[in-house]
Amino acid sequence: MKIVIIGAGEVGYNIASRLAHESKAVVVIDQDPQACRRLAEDLDVQVIVGSGSSPSALTEAGIRDTDILLAVTDSDEINITACLLANQLSPLTRKLARLRNEELIPFHSNLKKESPGIDTIINPEVEVVKTIRKLMEVPEARDTGDFLEGKVKYVGIRLDDASPIAGLPLSEFHKRFGNDRPLLAAIIREGEVIVPRGKDSTQAGDLVYFVCETRNLEEKLKLLGVRISPVKKVLIVGGGRIGAQLAKSLEADKIEAKIIESDLDRCHELS
């Protein structure tokens, strides 16, 4: 698989490092010669000094035989232009863009469906807010996420001594819970990942991941001794972009939110 990355900053560097270790063919384009030199010295990747919004730089990178383009510079304009040009030069290449400007959020759908035809748009602040909101759905959870457009959820719960399944072998789950037994996907114990089998037992202190249909989440949590209490009031420390986005998200769901911010001018903006 060949991947072209636009941007050799911290985000681009870390992505390139991960992909290079997975033996992917990686090409990185950036205008900063020092950032390019750092990549060339540290990683087994091809580096091109140039702008990701330049057709010649994209052509030199071999965009026409590239599987995925990742536009992750600090400039939304360059990222959008890179995807636009890639769409013209290589329509079959999948395009991912990092876009941070809040004003572009309402246009994400159009940027995907129409030109420049971006397949995936990532706004870091929006993703953080989504993660926080997911964790708020299950305050006891250490981790949570979903599959199949939200129809299936995975949740990570830390077991304590009072948990109904602490010390219980998986082979006993059916006897204890019947067909409603929780489906355990993984157990994290002292940093070790355990794929649970019938003879394995859960222990207090384990981080247990289970999977269920979203509609059955509350029922499964009760089996684990966890009850969901709806969040009604939230205090947000920090009125930056993430804090503001989170407050808007909560307000849309009629959850009362208060923000603590030390910058008086920012407070006036938020109010």
Rank of each mutant, 00 (worst) to 15 (best):
P164M: 05
S163T: 13
R189E: 04
G178L: 14
L183T: 14
R189I: 03
F210T: 00
D161W: 09
N179P: 07
I194Y: 02
G178M: 14
G145F: 04
K153Y: 06
I188K: 08
K175W: 09
G150I: 12
C212G: 02
F177I: 06
E219V: 08
G191Y: 09
R158N: 03
P196A: 06
I165H: 00
D206R: 01
D180V: 11
V208L: 05
H174F: 12
C212L: 06
I194D: 00
E149K: 12
V195R: 11
D146H: 15
L148N: 09
F173K: 00
R197M: 09
T202Q: 01
F177G: 01
L170I: 07
L148V: 12
Q203W: 04
T144E: 08
D200N: 11
F210Y: 03
A186L: 14
G178E: 15
Y209Q: 05
F173V: 04
F177K: 08
D160W: 06
I157H: 00
R176Q: 12
E213W: 10
L183G: 13
K175A: 11
L217V: 07
I165T: 02
E172C: 07
L183S: 15
L207I: 10
T214Y: 09
L148G: 08
G205Y: 07
P169K: 03
C212Y: 01
Y209M: 04
D161S: 13
L148R: 12
R158D: 04
K199V: 03
L207F: 11
L221M: 07
A204G: 12
Y209A: 03
V195I: 15
R181Y: 11
Y154E: 10
A162R: 14
F173M: 07
V211D: 01
G198I: 10
S201C: 10
S163L: 06
G198P: 05
G205I: 09
A186C: 13
I187T: 01
G167I: 07
F177M: 10
F177N: 05
V155H: 00
L207W: 03
R176S: 14
D146C: 12
L148A: 12
V152S: 04
E218W: 02
G191F: 06
D161Q: 13
F210R: 00
R197G: 04
K151F: 06
A166R: 00
D146P: 10
R176L: 14
F177Q: 05
T144C: 13
D161L: 12
V195T: 14
G150V: 09
G198L: 10
G205W: 07
V208K: 00
Y154M: 11
F210V: 03
R176Y: 11
E192T: 11
A185V: 12
F147P: 00
A166H: 00
A166P: 01
E172T: 11
Y209G: 00
R215V: 15
K153M: 11
A162E: 13
N216S: 13
L168M: 15
P169E: 02
E192R: 15
G156T: 05
E218D: 14
R158S: 06
E172R: 08
V155F: 03
L207V: 10
Q203P: 05
D200M: 04
A185E: 10
E213F: 12
T214K: 10
K199W: 02
S171I: 11
Y154K: 08
L183K: 15
A162S: 12
L168Q: 08
R189Y: 06
D206Y: 02
G156M: 06
L207S: 02
R176E: 09
G145W: 03
K151P: 04
R181Q: 14
L184F: 10
L184T: 01
I188M: 14
R189V: 05
R197E: 13
L221Q: 00
